[in-house]
Design a protein around this nucleic acid. Structure first.
Length: 201
DNA sequence: CGGAAGATTTCT
DNA sequence: GAAATCTTCCGA
């Protein structure tokens, strides 16, 4: 079943944990793509130095974060890659959940074509990669996830253990980088892996 | 209005 | 280890 508005109207950390194991679906003219969420990170606007909306700073980029939960927050990073986020909580609470990695479920050929690689484990194991694979761009900024071409549904899946770690690539955020706001499915081989060079997770 | 930096990926 | 490449933010 497709997740309804109520599911998203909770704080970002709770939502980040609950989104693990759910399935992200995007229907486009090219076809349908489905992938299971295996890794997320929570960003809590006001009190989180790593968030784009730190200090409740509202801008044209973060505007959708201040709206109701259940909408897509997409932004361009480093001028070349998109990152897909789900807006959490309710109005005037700029909390979001960054989707960091997916496990491909359906529409594999389409994803392989978009990513220009046939290696399944490398299709969606990073924020920029999964956006390319799912066909998510700034066109999807502000999309309603409750009834549209882009949505998240709950399917039966194997039980799993949730693991928490510090977030990735936010060294600039001071003490906020210590917070254990990254969530992933323990042992899943589709989680982002470029940070495993120095440590085994 | 100009400059700096970023929730990344890919190749050498 | 560095480049690619552009939007956003902040200071002047």
């Amino acid at each position: 079943m497709i997740l309804t508005r109520d599911f998203y109207l909770r704080d970002a950390n709770t939502l980040a944990k609950d989104l693990l194991g759910k399935t992200l679906v995007h229907r486009t003219a090219e076809g349908i793509a489905k992938a299971k969420i295996v890794e997320t990170e929570a960003y809590l606007g006001g009190d989180d130095a790593a968030s784009h909306s730190f200090g409740n700073l509202k801008s044209s980029r973060t505007a959708v974060q201040f709206g109701l939960g259940g909408f897509a927050y997409v932004f361009l990073i480093y001028g070349m890659h998109y990152c897909f986020n789900v807006v959490a909580s309710t109005v005037d609470r700029p909390e979001v959940v960054l989707i960091r990695a997916l496990e491909p479920v359906e529409g594999l050929e389409l994803m392989q074509k978009r990513r220009k690689t046939d290696k399944l484990a490398q299709l969606c194991n990073g924020p920029g990669k999964l956006c390319a694979a799912m066909g998510i761009t700034k066109e999807q900024y502000g999309e309603d996830l409750c009834g549209g071409k882009l949505y998240i549904e709950e399917l039966c899946c194997e039980p799993f253990i949730i693991k928490t770690t510090p977030r990735i690539n936010i060294d600039y955020a001071g003490e906020a980088k210590e917070y254990l706001w990254r969530y992933l499915i323990a042992g899943n081989r589709f989680v982002s892996g470029y940070n495993v060079k120095s440590k085994i997770e």
